[in-house]
Nucleic acid binder design. Structure first.
Lengths: 183, 183
DNA sequence: TGTAGCATGTAAGCAGTTACATGATTAC
DNA sequence: GTAATCATGTAACTGCTTACATGCTACA
């Protein structure tokens, strides 16, 4: 599928960047649904350049340090647009280690289950607060033609997802506590 | 992390199974958060047997066909319990190609965006109905010590996740339609 | 002058998918 | 007889992670 290819093309379509910059992007909002390490980014950029979807200029920073500033080509833009238009069937539901653990949780005593659930809840709550903090920076829905529109709707999606996760964890905690009382 | 290892141990802890049976389990409820192809299952079973976490008996089905009925060993059960008790930090948020597409959706006209969003909505609605149908088979919360408890809470989690996804898609569709009106 | 961050790359290995390969059993 | 399903495996490849490897720049 080469999704990383399109993630990079999408970013370069916003503005020219170095591989290092792309790596940083994968640590901000984008990290809510895509990411890659530099060891994957650099080879992919090399490949994209070879395929002529991107080009680069070497810039000198300071006295010696060479930076490769990558930009998307016309061919790359066409490729990106083609991918964006694709109407594909929904993906398989993502793998989730914690849910797997809970699937087999009947092997744990109720105290352990509650402990694990509460620990997850605390961590996910923190993440939710962080996301809500970012959302505060958007007083209104950004213009539908700006980059900010994508940033905004994805952020809202992440918040909704996080809230529903907390809702589920609460429900599980509730079941366990009720079982404890009945015992 | 070898998560497949624990997924298999958890299943064999419920009842002895063949590799083929395990493959089928990965197509039912379990598929909401874990799965594997037979080409990954068979080598893993072989490895688990070598590590003495599982054993197998060869059964003859019909005249010739050999079936390997795998069971978990005591060592395997200990290993599984150790893993179940682990309280780990939350995982990175899962990758999501559709969200990536929407992140870059400012490059699409509003009609295309709405079309893509509606297509996702329809598909996810179908999946939600299917999940709700399964939930109907649980008139009450199953006993907390039975396998069914795990099945049940994971099913509820899948439904909540699915509902929240639809909520987000609706929100996005709404933004696009409003932008269309303003145009 | 030291350290955090900028900057770029390669190599080994694990996890997972697709394709290759084979054959038996059951039920119609 | 034939098709669907049961049943087990291997090989090649893609995607991704961890570790190895190097060196510069800005700032305190």
């Amino acid at each position: 599928m080469r999704t990383l290819k399109y993630a990079i093309l999408g970013l370069l379509n916003r503005r020219p960047m170095t591989g290092y910059d792309i790596g940083k992007e994968f640590n901000y909002e984008l990290s809510e649904f895509w990411y890659a390490k530099h060891s994957q980014i650099y080879p992919e950029l090399k490949r994209l350049a070879k395929e002529e979807f991107v080009t680069y200029d070497i810039e000198i920073s300071g006295d010696i340090l060479e930076k490769k500033q990558y930009s998307i080509t016309e061919k790359g833009q066409k490729e990106l647009l083609m991918w964006l238009h694709k109407d594909e069937i929904i993906e398989k539901t993502p793998k989730d280690v914690f849910r797997l653990r809970m699937y087999f949780s009947n092997n744990l005593d109720l105290e352990s289950r509650i402990h694990l659930l509460e620990s997850q809840k605390m961590q996910h709550k923190k993440r939710l607060y962080a996301l809500q903090k970012i959302l505060e920076q958007y007083p209104v829905v950004p213009d539908y033609n700006s980059d900010r529109f994508g940033d905004f709707i994805i952020l809202e999606g992440a918040i909704i997802r996080q809230e529903s996760l907390l809702k589920w964890l609460d429900k599980c905690i509730d079941y366990c506590k009720k079982a404890q009382e009945e015992k």
